[in-house]
Simulated scan of single mutants.
Amino acid sequence: MPVDAPPPRIRSDDPASFAASVLRDRHPAIVARVLADLPLPAAARDGLAGLLQDPTVTPLPRDAHDHEDWDRWGEPYFGQSMFEVPFLWAENYFYRRLLHATGYHEPGPWRGIDPFGPQKAADLPGEDELRAVQESGDALLHLPEDEQASALVAAALWGNRADLGFQLAHGLAQAQADLVADDTELLWKRLAGGGTVCVVADNAGRELLPDLVLIDFLLRAGRVRRVELHVKPAPYFVSDALTADVLAELRRFPADSAIGRRLWAALRAGTLELVTDPFYCAPLEFAQLPAGLAARFGAATLTILKGDLNYRRLVGDRSWAPETSFADVTGYFPGPVAALRTVKSDVVVGLAAGVEERLPASWRTSGAFAMVQVRG
């Protein structure tokens, strides 16, 4: 399908669709978990209940710090059901309303309290796991650098599915077999010339751990001079990484962990920089980047976007034909860009002809397949 005539945006008005199941089934489960994890006051509980009872898109309260932005973004959709508006927009709206209900941005005792904090804490790797990572990382040093690189990209790509002890001698072949698009070779060509690499994070917890180890490798091996790790400015999509989540993970490394010490030192020295922007919690796609982020990405040797949500924001949350060119769809992006994504939603571009016909019917939402795609 031509990029200059893009297909419709995905919506949730088909009850049998994956998008509808997220709003209908996943969102109530998320609210129930927040209510179970936190002793929220009655007003917060009522606000969360109301969010589920009435799916109508309405303006944020006038005292919300960002109500003017949401007035502008929501103006085409006010009065409609979340099931009737673009799916990506509806998801973002749900999480913004959830943060308002729990008082995250509002003055008071619950200001700044991550409603997903208990879930994230439960997913932090333990000391034994981190020691295994260090030991396996040390073992990787004896492999050729290209084998180290392949193993670390596989771990960063698969997240929770990857063996976080990096026992990849047994799992790497299967991980590669489940790649439906694989530009890994081009990825490493882009990561051979120094400069600055932007890594736009996805999840915290165990999925963040291989990202941090990959960043350590890039700096230690001299593949890059600097890394910017971009994180969310507020809790979003349950497990998305914040600055606090990165620091919590680094603090869990044992005191004698060389990886932990190097990453901490890199943050102090500025060769690893944490970056955030309000854009990351806006119902927008990367085609609508603010000038500041566009300048950062334009100046970078490569921007690596992790995860399914960032992929949807990169290519557009639309019903693309799967053979649509990834390079064409992402041609607007201000610099070279790579997507490392475990496929967990309907949006797909860049497949070779005939690939989808060989995959199971549920492959787009099963989390069993992945993509490494590069433009630049």
Rank of each mutant, 00 (worst) to 15 (best):
residue 4 D to T: 15
residue 5 A to E: 13
residue 10 I to K: 01
residue 10 I to A: 03
residue 18 F to Y: 12
residue 18 F to A: 13
residue 26 R to P: 03
residue 27 H to F: 11
residue 32 A to W: 12
residue 44 A to N: 07
residue 44 A to V: 09
residue 51 L to T: 05
residue 51 L to I: 13
residue 55 P to Q: 06
residue 57 V to Y: 05
residue 58 T to K: 01
residue 63 D to F: 08
residue 63 D to G: 05
residue 63 D to K: 04
residue 64 A to F: 14
residue 66 D to E: 14
residue 68 E to C: 05
residue 83 F to D: 07
residue 90 A to M: 04
residue 98 L to M: 12
residue 106 E to N: 11
residue 114 D to K: 11
residue 125 P to Y: 13
residue 126 G to F: 06
residue 133 V to R: 00
residue 135 E to C: 08
residue 140 L to C: 07
residue 143 L to H: 14
residue 146 D to S: 14
residue 149 A to H: 02
residue 157 L to D: 00
residue 158 W to E: 00
residue 165 G to S: 14
residue 181 A to C: 14
residue 191 L to M: 15
residue 202 D to E: 03
residue 203 N to S: 07
residue 204 A to G: 10
residue 210 P to Y: 01
residue 221 A to T: 15
residue 231 V to G: 01
residue 243 T to P: 00
residue 243 T to Y: 04
residue 247 L to M: 11
residue 249 E to W: 01
residue 253 F to V: 02
residue 255 A to D: 14
residue 259 I to P: 02
residue 279 F to I: 10
residue 288 Q to P: 02
residue 293 L to V: 10
residue 293 L to D: 05
residue 305 L to H: 05
residue 307 G to F: 00
residue 310 N to M: 08
residue 320 W to H: 06
residue 323 E to G: 06
residue 333 F to N: 03
residue 340 L to F: 03
residue 342 T to Y: 01
residue 346 D to L: 07
residue 348 V to A: 06
residue 359 L to T: 08
residue 360 P to I: 12
residue 363 W to H: 09
residue 365 T to K: 03
residue 376 G to P: 08
